[in-house]
Measured scan of single mutants.
Amino acid sequence: RSRTTFTAEQLEELEKAFERTHYPDIYTREELAQRTKLTEARVQVWFSNRRARWRK
């Protein structure tokens, strides 16, 4: 699998969701996946990476 490139629109959606919760449940992730046209797995990994960046 090659590296996922996120569009500005996708990042906006993901960042907005991250402001609400750092640990979205499966329903939230599924909804985000549909809205951003990404897979739920990509959304999950993005949140994991985003939390790592947030901790630094």
Rank of each mutant, 00 (worst) to 15 (best):
K56A: 12
R42E: 15
R1I: 15
T39V: 05
E19C: 09
E9D: 06
L11K: 06
A41R: 06
E31M: 05
W46N: 02
A41Y: 06
E15L: 02
R29D: 00
E30Q: 12
R53H: 10
V45H: 07
E19P: 01
L11Y: 06
R55L: 11
E31F: 13
S2M: 13
E30W: 08
R20F: 03
T7K: 05
A52S: 08
D25C: 05
F6M: 08
H22R: 09
R20I: 09
T7Q: 13
W46F: 02
T36M: 15
A17M: 13
T5I: 10
A52G: 05
Q44S: 15
I26K: 13
A52C: 09
S2Y: 08
W46E: 01
Q10N: 10
L14Q: 02
Q10G: 05
T28M: 13
R42Y: 09
T39R: 01
T7F: 07
E12K: 14
E30F: 08
Q34K: 14
R50E: 11
E31S: 11
H22C: 07
L14A: 02
R42H: 13
E13G: 03
R3F: 14
L14P: 03
Y23Q: 01
Q10H: 04
R51V: 08
T4S: 12
T5R: 07
W54P: 10
T36K: 02
Y27I: 13
A33R: 00
E19K: 14
E30T: 09
E15K: 11
K16T: 09
V45P: 04
P24G: 01
Y23D: 11
I26E: 14
V45Y: 08
R20S: 10
E12A: 12
E12V: 08
F18L: 01
E12Q: 13
L14M: 08
T5D: 15
E40I: 11
T7W: 01
R55V: 07
L32N: 00
L32G: 00
W54M: 13
D25P: 01
T7H: 03
R29F: 08
E31W: 09
P24R: 04
Q44T: 13
I26H: 11
E19H: 09
R20P: 01
W54S: 13
R51C: 03
Q44F: 06
N49R: 06
P24W: 00
T7V: 06
S48G: 08
E15H: 11
P24V: 02
L38P: 01
W46S: 02
L38M: 13
V43G: 00
T36H: 05
A8T: 11
E31Q: 08
E15F: 04
